[in-house]
Design a protein around this nucleic acid. Sequence first.
DNA 1: TGTTACTCGGGTAATTGGGGCG
DNA 2: GGTGTCCCAATTACCCGAGTAA
Lengths: 68, 68
Amino acid sequence: MTAATERLLTPGEVANLFRVDPKTVTRWATAGRIGSIRTPGGHRRFRETEVKALLSELTTEATEPVRH
Amino acid sequence: MTAATERLLTPGEVANLFRVDPKTVTRWATAGRIGSIRTPGGHRRFRETEVKALLSELTTEATEPVRH
DNA sequence: TGTTACTCGGGTAATTGGGGCG
DNA sequence: GGTGTCCCAATTACCCGAGTAA
C-alpha cells in the first residue's frame, strides 16, 4: 500500500504543541475538530501532518510594528 | 519547516509579565501588535520568544546618573 | 514477566472569549 | 486611543481510579 507510514503523535505530544492539556486534545477529537486513529486498546493517535497544518492555519503573525 | 517546538504562553501569563489585564493582551493580538496561535476552541496562546522580545524592545534604561 | 509512563473515562473548578460601558 | 471592569457562554485545567503502551 501506498503511503509510507505517516508519523503519528500521542495526545501528550499534540498537547505540548498547543500548550493545552492532553485531555483537551481528546475533546477536539471527540468533537471532530481533528482526525484521530484509535489503537486496539482505545488510545488515540494523531497524524503529524494534520496537526502541523492545523497549527499553521491558526497561527497569526503580528502586523503592526512596535512603537517606541 | 517551520519551527516545531516553541514555548507558548497563556493570555494570563503574558498579562502577568506586562502587569496588565488578560483582556488587554487579547486586544494586542486583535490589533496585530503581537502574533497569536489559537486553539481549535478559540483560546489564544503566545510565543514566549516574541513576548520577551517585545518586553525588551519597550524597555528603556535610565540615561542620567544619580546626583548626590 | 515486571516496571514505568501515559491515556483512557467522568466530574468539577478556573480561564478565556466577546460585547458593551465608563 | 487605550485600559479596566461587569455580564454570560464556551473552552480549558486539575481531580480520581483503572486500563493500555512500550
